[in-house]
């Protein structure tokens, strides 16, 4: 599903964010990207989302090298990728339903499809009773659930999560992880950048550790350290 081959990402002339990174992620795998701040976790996610092009190397997503993908094809690539953010990035003037529906509206899904799929995904994240609420009427955990629903509503092949539990208390974070695990069980590949040692140790999934842009560990059923 994802393959990186000798990927180097340099900002300017001398800031190396990722150095000679190579790894494969098969379809349906759950992978944690761990490492200290500035180690290159978020840069790797941006490379997979084609927000950045690598300075060297190839980035393969769903069988295509996206490093040399024309800009016009990038939106179609992103329809196969769900993004979850630490700060949720919900639209404050839209309800829960509208926030999730927005992801379908902007890619031209017809209204009857939206009316059918949004309630279904809200049920998966457990917010079917709160679809008319605005983000400021929800807790942090609920807001992150809306963000996950928005990322998942188009049934992407891959979910990229950048510190999704970073703003949540441990109990709420665990609920979010259970939700991501359920989504992973449907066959969606999940890559999650995190600092949360407790969660990584509890989940026992594959761990890729980065240090100053270099992959220093790639361990199946790994722990944080």
């Amino acid at each position: 599903m994802i393959r990186l081959e000798n990927v180097t990402m340099t900002y300017g002339t001398d800031v190396v964010a990722v150095r000679e990174a190579s790894f494969d992620v098969p379809k349906g795998e759950f992978v944690f990207l761990v490492g200290p701040s500035g180690s290159g976790k978020s840069t790797l996610l941006r490379l997979l989302n084609r927000e950045e092009r690598p300075s060297h190397g190839s980035v393969w997503v769903a069988g295509r090298n996206i490093a040399d993908m024309p800009s016009g094809r990038v939106p179609h690539l992103r329809r196969n990728i769900g993004n979850i953010f630490q700060d949720y990035k919900l639209l404050p003037n839209k309800t829960v339903f509208e926030n999730v529906a927005f992801a379908q509206q902007v890619i031209g899904k017809p209204k009857h499809v939206i009316r059918q799929q949004v309630p279904a995904v809200l049920e998966i994240v457990g917010l079917q009773d709160k679809h008319e609420r605005f983000p400021n009427q929800l807790s942090g955990g609920e807001q992150q659930r809306v963000s996950i629903a928005r990322a998942f509503v188009n049934r992407p092949l891959i979910m990229l999560a950048d510190e999704p539990t970073g703003n949540l208390d441990p109990g709420t974070g665990e609920g979010i992880m259970r939700l991501l695990d359920r989504i992973n069980e449907t066959g969606t590949t999940v890559l999650m950048a995190t600092h949360d040692q407790r969660i990584v140790n509890a989940m026992r999934k594959r761990v890729i550790q980065l240090d100053r842009g270099v992959i220093v560990r790639d361990q199946a059923r790994g722990v944080y350290d």
Partner: peptide, 16 residues
């Protein structure tokens, strides 16, 4: 800007 960021993330085309 936030709306635009979300639109880009979910795959809206440039022209949209």
């Amino acid at each position: 800007r936030r709306e635009i960021e979300v639109m880009k993330a979910v795959g809206a085309t440039d022209w949209f």
